[in-house]
Design a protein around this nucleic acid. Sequence first.
DNA 1: TGCCGAGATTGGTTCGAACCATTTGGATTC
DNA 2: GAATCCAAATGGTTCGAACCAATCTCGGCA
Lengths: 255, 255
Amino acid sequence: MSTETEAVAETGASFTGETDAPASKAEAMKARLRDEVISHLAPHDPLPPERELANRFAVSRATVRQALARLADHGWVYRVQGSGTFVADKDLVTKSPYLTSFSEDIAERGMTPGSRVLRLEHVRADERVARELLIPVGSRVVHIERLRTADGAPLCVEGLWLPEWLTGENLGPELLGSLYAYFEHAGASPARAHQTLRAVTLDEAQAELLDTEPGAAALTVSRIVFDAHGRRIEASNSVYRGDRYDFQINVKRRA
Amino acid sequence: MSTETEAVAETGASFTGETDAPASKAEAMKARLRDEVISHLAPHDPLPPERELANRFAVSRATVRQALARLADHGWVYRVQGSGTFVADKDLVTKSPYLTSFSEDIAERGMTPGSRVLRLEHVRADERVARELLIPVGSRVVHIERLRTADGAPLCVEGLWLPEWLTGENLGPELLGSLYAYFEHAGASPARAHQTLRAVTLDEAQAELLDTEPGAAALTVSRIVFDAHGRRIEASNSVYRGDRYDFQINVKRRA
DNA sequence: TGCCGAGATTGGTTCGAACCATTTGGATTC
DNA sequence: GAATCCAAATGGTTCGAACCAATCTCGGCA
């Protein structure tokens, strides 16, 4: 039941946030450019020049440039100095390298996220967790293990460790809903993360949970999440079925 | 022999480019901030305010902000609105999501890249290659297969496909040196790429080449590379040993 | 016909300024 | 002593302007 709660809550939030109240003029410009300009053009068609867009939409060129930069990050357009800004091929639009929750990530891919809690307990931090959370070895931390699903099918086994200075003695259901909402409530909103991707093979227990064979390929995403104050609020390790998940990213050549 | 040529050439370029001629004031500011400010501070110490930095280094605040933004991308600092900019923990500095060649990537990790060519030939584009390069099925493409090494140890098997409009009938040694240098020469400098990461297991042939066991975990990086004109100049597929390679990235929470 | 160069066009960088949003810390108040 | 409020400090956004760098266009020239 808590699985559905989270799915609905986070999905809803992610969708309404898109059109409600643009956080800035640049964000609004980004949406307008996508809907009113790019959608009327074919791939590799040039967009109007920045100066003309600034004039037409009654904003400064800086705002237009910020919007265009974000569109380029997402793979909607590409830019050529001295030449123009062009519509990109539509088959390669990806999310930017932004920090997202599992639910947001899955919803963005057009599926319905779900989750089943396998474990929820206080444990002592081992060497790895202590190093990742920057706390002494043996400190008490909350450990959560969840099976995450997309459209009902098992997709990933997720292990989470939260420092106890954040959670207190708490082990209640609020830790089982949207974790990111809980972070907000605790005054430690996620701000940035360091992620490491590796390839591994599944052991028997993991294979059982993910409904596949031991030795199958899996993608592990290890993540250390920071709040706005630079405090480490989560260490996690997600093991994704290799045949059902990939990680896409657009990169630019450095100057 | 061509392996050493590439390694030396690309490594050298990557290192000299750092200090020679700053491409812009912002890039220079980034280096100066790292060397003259951050290096004298401890993690979580605040940097001087933007306005003061702008004054001290005699540049505009916009330039300072651009430099700080790039340092944040690389994980050197983190920023908190209303509070300040702070030195980040030093164990999590990564390269930004920039497009790099294998040689640059390995050199950045402090190892020496090498390569052995396994195959070099003209082939007809199959369905996948045709789709990725946006050319008709059956078009002639150059196919290169290389074993890539780091400090002499096999790290990845790399398959490349280049459209023939770029290479012509050419199959000479210039294709075996630094490929990115060849792109420059051909007037098609790499500008951006779309990457997909997946986890797979190695088949027997791959395991043999990578000096490990069939069924071992491997990370595949599929890449479509574009030049400044949006033309697709390379489709590639690199299979990395899962126990010797990971992919690190810093991400921020979206606004 | 082909090449070359000058000028126009376009995105990229830098500047200075003003204002907004958030955070912080001290003063005030109870 | 605790809670509240307010002003200052700081990063974030937007504006207008100027100039730089790469590219494109088109006319002149060989």
